[in-house]
Design a protein around this nucleic acid. Structure first.
Length: 409
RNA sequence: GGAUGGUUUCCCGAGUGGCCAAAGGGGACAGACUGUAAAUCUGCUGGCAACGCCUUCGGUGGUUCGAAUCCACCACCAUCCA
């Protein structure tokens, strides 16, 4: 199976500008493609991960990836698919985020060897553009009528769109044009929400240079309810282990909906398509096996095999009660937190971050949601002794949250 | 620049002087059922030394025994007119 066919089989391709041509290019390793990453945070998240995997797959097929860091576009903020304006970032933040991105990417993409990936930053050319020049050179190629029709602005036409954000499409188009001209970059990939921005680029290249460039979008990873995946109540699922621990990361994937497991395995892992097809017949409880696999594979890709193994073992130990369960998240209790050699369970919950306030902790206990070392906590006054804390105390909140409290020496 | 409407707790949204920590819905969280799933049902959802007290209804002042509610100014948003 060639790479293009594989991408189709995995359900990764959403839209393409010219299918035969793109197939020909990437199947034969003739594409030099770029994906843009705007430095909106100090860590990559699952959405970026998909894009990076795509880069990896294409790189393995002999194509050359160009990573575009949005050090310049970050000053503007992409309005696509958003209901409100992004908060503006300071130059320092943008720079810091770019640096973080770069570091994380090195894990996934090869920056050495034959099709070595290269990194460019659009701050290098966007920041020194001259307004009038751009208007004359580039602005003249865009029809406002067409732009307003673009899907990515639809939502914002109701709630308001600033001129700043409206220009994002032009900047992204200019990027493609610039990379085409100066780096021979003939293709752009991106999330499906980028489609209009990407078309802007191919049109600009056609108008300015009379040449064809191609664009392809990746299916956005949606769950069966039509919501973007990779988000939790607390925010994104990050790739940075300090922001989302490998254990949490593992648990996120372990807990996806039945309806979404196979789709995720297909789109996110490198498991051969044939093997995945065999799982199509799995149903009910059997799907738990697929979830285990998904969680392990992804954690291994992002955090390495060792961390994945630890997360897996911790999960098995915690949920089935056998094996080593020492790898759960833990908090050190300082001696100063104790009074008369003990802490109340209520205080312990807040110290460990399992409850935001004592009221919340009380509520949890009242509703029977807290247990210590497997025994349900009956009341908020229950005390945990320093003696017990010395060897570590296992606290369970709700069904899935496990935490160890350990007395610091 | 002008007119009008708006800004309420995580989100949407009711409340137009005391009965308001503020209806209702969503989400989140917890319990039951389960497969670490979904659906369903139940509870719960500002804080604290907790039948009481404290902080909250865009911001700042004011009127009043008493303000989310009335007044003034400011800020922001939306729609229409320029």
């Amino acid at each position: 199976m060639k790479i293009y066919e594989e991408l189709v089989a995995r359900g990764l391709i959403a839209q393409v500008t010219d299918e035969p041509e793109i197939k020909e290019l990437i199947n034969n390793g003739k594409a030099k493609f770029y994906i843009g990453f705007d430095p909106t945070a100090d860590s990559l998240h699952v959405g970026h991960f998909m894009a990076l995997c795509l880069m990896k797959r294409l790189q393995m097929a002999g194509n050359q990836p160009v990573v575009l860091l949005g050090g310049g576009t970050g000053y503007i903020g992409d309005p696509s698919g958003r209901t409100d304006m992004r908060s503006m970032m300071s130059p320092e933040t943008i720079q810091h985020n770019c640096d973080c991105f770069k570091k994380q990417m090195e894990r996934f993409i090869d920056f050495e060897g034959e099709n070595a990936a290269i990194v460019v930053n659009n701050a290098d050319w966007l920041l020194k553009l001259n307004y009038i020049e751009v208007l004359r050179e580039v602005g003249s190629c865009f029809s406002v009528n067409n732009m307003l029709r673009a899907e990515c602005y639809k939502q914002r036409m109701e709630r308001g769109l600033s001129f700043l954000e409206f220009n994002y499409m032009i900047m992204q188009s200019y990027d493609f044009y610039y990379l085409f001209k100066n780096y021979g970059c003939n293709m752009q990939f991106g999330g499906d929400d980028q489609w209009s921005n990407m078309l802007g680029g191919t049109e600009l290249i056609r108008k300015k240079l009379g040449k064809d460039a191609y664009a392809m979008t990746i299916t956005l990873l949606m769950n069966s309810e039509g919501k973007k995946m990779g988000k939790t109540a607390k925010g994104a699922v990050w790739l940075d282990p300090n922001k989302t621990s490998p254990f949490e990361f593992y648990q996120y994937w372990r807990n996806v909906d039945d309806a979404d497991v196979l789709k995720c395995i297909r789109m996110l892992t490198f498991i051969p398509v044939e093997e995945i097809d065999q799982m199509n017949s799995w149903e009910g409880e059997e799907l738990n096996k697929a979830k285990d696999l998904l969680a392990y594979e992804l954690t291994a890709l992002v955090h390495g095999k060792e961390e994945a193994q630890k997360a897996k073992e911790a999960s098995i130990a915690l949920f089935s009660g056998v094996g080593d369960d020492s790898n759960m998240p833990s908090t050190e209790i300082r001696p100063s937190d104790l009074t008369d050699g003990a802490v109340s369970i209520l205080d312990l919950l807040t110290i460990c971050g399992l409850a935001k306030s004592k009221s919340e902790g009380r509520r949890l206990i009242q509703q029977g949601g807290v247990s210590v070392e497997g025994k349900k906590v009956e009341g908020p006054e229950e005390m945990i002794t320093a003696e017990a804390l010395k060897s570590g105390v296992k606290i369970k909140k709700g069904k899935k949250v496990f935490h160890r409290a350990l007395l610091a020496e």
